[in-house]
C-alpha cells in the first residue's frame, strides 16, 4: 500500500505570553514571560495510521492537537493537511472544505457536549452547518451515526445529562463523524473514563478506524493505552519531540533516556516482582526551560554538551531520537521491561 501522507507538521511552534499586565510590569519590574508550549515539533502521519503523542502534563501534546485543528494559530512552522497548507488562520479560512475533513474528540465528556442541546441537535450541527443533508435525511443520518457508535436512534431526543460518561464520549464521537471526516484528533479521549468503559471506547475507535478508513492523532499520557492503539508513537518533553518511531520499535527498543524512564514508571500488572526505578526529579517549568537538552536536569547520562547544545533528531533504522548520548553511542543497552 502506498503510504499517502495525510498530515505533515514541520517545525511547529507555539509560544504563550503569560506576562503580567503591562501596568504591573512597569510598577513591579520584570519583563515579558513566554511559555514555549510547543517548540519546534515535526512529524508526518500517513493514511490509516494512528500516531500518538505521549508525555507528562505540560509537555505540549494537547497544544499540538489544538494547533492542528486550528483552535490556536501557530507562532511559527507549517501544517500541511492533505496537500494544503493550513499554517495560519487566513489559509484555514480559504479552505473550509479541508477544515471539514478534520475533527476532534475531547477529554472531558461532561464539558464537551452543550448541556442545553438535545443529543440529536448536537450531532446534527456539523451536518446542518455545512448543509450536507436536509430535512428528514438529517434525522436519519443522526440515527445512523448513533447506532454506529453503539447507541440507539431514539437517544437523539434526550439531553446529555441523561447519559453516563462513556455514552457521552460515544456521542462526541458521533458528532465528530457527522461531517464524514477522515482525520480525527483525539485529545485524551479516555482519560476521564473508567477502565471498563475505556476499553469500550478504545475498541469502538479501532472498529471505526477500520470500517471508515480513518486516520488518528491520539494524545495520551497513558503509555499502556498508547501501545494498544497506535501504529506510531512520539514522546514529547517540554514542548519538543524527543523520540518517535513505530510503536513496536519504540516499546521494545526505547532509545531516549526519557522514554526509558516513562516505560520504567508504568505499574507492573504482571506482578513479576520487577523493581521499579522511581524517576528522579520533576518536569521543570516551561517558562524558563533548562538550556541545551531540556531533559538534562533529570538525565543520568547528562554531560557538559547536553547542558549547552540542543540535540538534533537523528534517524537510526526508522527510529528518530534527539539525544547526544545516543549520537555519541554512550547509552547503555535497554534491558527490557521484564528484566
Amino acid at each position: 500500500m502506498a503510504q499517502e501522507t495525510v498530515l505533515q507538521v514541520d517545525n511547529l511552534k507555539r509560544y504563550f505570553d503569560v506576562s503580567k499586565p503591562w501596568l504591573s510590569r512597569v510598577l513591579e519590574g520584570g519583563g515579558r514571560q513566554v511559555v514555549q508550549a510547543v517548540d519546534g515539533v515535526s512529524f508526518e502521519i500517513s493514511k490509516g495510521e494512528t500516531f500518538s503523542l505521549v508525555g507528562e502534563s505540560g509537555c505540549g501534546k494537547s497544544t499540538v492537537a489544538r494547533l492542528i485543528v486550528g483552535l490556536y494559530p501557530p507562532t511559527d512552522g507549517s501544517i500541511v493537511f492533505e496537500g494544503v497548507s493550513l499554517s495560519n488562520p487566513a489559509e484555514r479560512a480559504r479552505h473550509p472544505e479541508k477544515q471539514a475533513r478534520m475533527q476532534m474528540i475531547f477529554q472531558d465528556p461532561y464539558a464537551s457536549l452543550n448541556p442545553r442541546w438535545r443529543v440529536g441537535d448536537i450531532i446534527a450541527e456539523p451536518i446542518r452547518f455545512r448543509k450536507l443533508l436536509e430535512g428528514g435525511a438529517v434525522k436519519a443520518r443522526v440515527g445512523e451515526l448513533l447506532e454506529q457508535v453503539g447507541l440507539s436512534a431514539r437517544d437523539a431526543e434526550k439531553y446529555p445529562h441523561e447519559f453516563s460518561g462513556g455514552q457521552r464520549q460515544r456521542i462526541s464521537i458521533a458528532r465528530a463523524l457527522a461531517g464524514r471526516p477522515d482525520f480525527l484528533v483525539c485529545d485524551e479521549p479516555t482519560s476521564a473514563l473508567d477502565v471498563s468503559v475505556q476499553a469500550q471506547i478504545l475498541n469502538l475507535m479501532k472498529e471505526l478506524q477500520a470500517s471508515l478508513n480513518l486516520t488518528y492523532l491520539f494524545i495520551s499520557h497513558n503509555l499502556a493505552v498508547v501501545s494498544h492503539v497506535s501504529t506510531k508513537v512520539g514522546v514529547m518533553y517540554l514542548g519538543r519531540l524527543v523520540e518517535w518511531a513505530e510503536t513496536r520499535t519504540l516499546f521494545n527498543r526505547p532509545k531516549h533516556p526519557y522514554t526509558r524512564m516513562l516505560l520504567d514508571a508504568i505499574p507492573d500488572l504482571d506482578m513479576s516482582g520487577r523493581a521499579r526505578t522511581p524517576v528522579a526529579g520533576e518536569v521543570p517549568s516551561p517558562i524558563n526551560p533548562p538550556s541545551g537538552c531540556t531533559f538534562h536536569t533529570r538525565c543520568p547520562f547528562a554531560t557538559e554538551r547536553c547542558r549547552a547544545e540542543v540535540p538534533q533528531a537523528l534517524s537510526v533504522d526508522g527510529q528518530n531520537v534527539a539525544c547526544h548520548a545516543v549520537e555519541e553511542g554512550r547509552l547503555p543497552e535497554w534491558r527490557g521491561l521484564a528484566a
Binding site: Q167, D194, V195, S196, Q200, N203, A224, H228, A338
Partner: peptide, 20 residues
Amino acid sequence: GAIPNLGHDVAALTQIEGSM
C-alpha cells in the same frame, strides 16, 4: 481484561458492556 497492558498485544480489549 479491560486494562491495556504493555507486555501483551491484543487486537481488542475485553469489554464489559454497559456501565455501572
